[in-house]
Amino acid sequence: MDPRPERTAPLHRLGIPLRALLLALVVAVVPVAALAASGGQSQAKATKGITVTLSPSSRTVDQGQTATYTISATSTGGFAGPVTFGVAGLPSGATAAWSPSPVVLASGGTAQVTVTITTAPGTPAGKSDFTVKGTAGTLQATAQAQLHVLEVKRTFDVTGTVSGMLAPGVSRSVDLLITNSNTKGIAVTNLTVSMTQVVRTPAAVAANLPCTTADYKLTQYSGTYPLTVEPGARSLSSLGVPEQKRPHITMLDTSRNQDGCKGATLLLTFTGTGQAN
């Protein structure tokens, strides 16, 4: 036996080309690198957009007054640009004003806008759900809130003056006097006149001569509404209501004896509705 240590034969002598081995190592490494690169490109990009929120969710307001809400517009997915606003679903007579509008959002940023809802004296009382919409090009976002409108009534006095004496077959107008004791003007509607009692003279009572509300006819106010009455006293005539549109009292000309109505006093009641103006 040869005592010299056994020497390993060169790779090329074993029949394994060195180039093939190196190529195998490269092939083993490449898929790992390619997989890493592919994994980085597979992450989906966030979609650009906007969100809109509205605060508070509900407000209560008197007819003819205003309510304010705060709108927050937020950028998502890297959106940047101007956002404008609109509203739908407000009750009749109510309008919206924005401050500021539009707003310009930076990527990832938030901007606040104030919307002021102004109601009219004639805006119907009740709850209304309305929607605020933010628009940026083709992007849109909405938020909802509620507006609760309260009916506002104001106290006032109504009296009336008959234009002359009544007699069978004669009609007289009633010039109503509206006294507004409030510090602001009111819008008056629903004026009515009713006859509550006929007070006969003592002589008619003693002679048992009848006279009742059936001897008279009332015609109600037929002018336009509302009547705007500033603080103080305003008559229908001073408000420009023509005589033919004012209430009228007519004494009917009947076949029965109406002597009991001579000198009689008619007690009238006046009503109406007054809203904040």
Rank of each mutant, 00 (worst) to 15 (best):
Q140T: 15
Q144H: 06
V193M: 12
P31W: 10
G164Q: 14
D2T: 03
S75P: 06
P102W: 09
T155R: 15
V83D: 08
D157L: 15
P17D: 11
Q65I: 02
T213R: 11
G263K: 10
L209F: 07
W98S: 03
L227I: 02
P210D: 10
G164Y: 12
C211F: 06
T131F: 06
Q140V: 13
A46G: 08
S72K: 15
T224D: 11
P242W: 09
S171M: 10
A94T: 00
Y225D: 03
P231T: 01
E243K: 15
T68Y: 01
P247W: 06
A141T: 04
G272P: 09
C261F: 14
P5A: 09
V32F: 14
V162S: 12
L147E: 03
T192K: 10
V26S: 03
Q258D: 14
S255P: 07
S237I: 03
V199H: 07
A67T: 05
K45A: 12
A97T: 15
R234S: 15
V198C: 12
V113Q: 04
P210T: 11
Y221C: 10
A111E: 15
P121H: 00
I50W: 05
L166F: 13
A120N: 05
E230Q: 12
G81K: 10
T224W: 05
G169M: 11
R154T: 11
N257C: 12
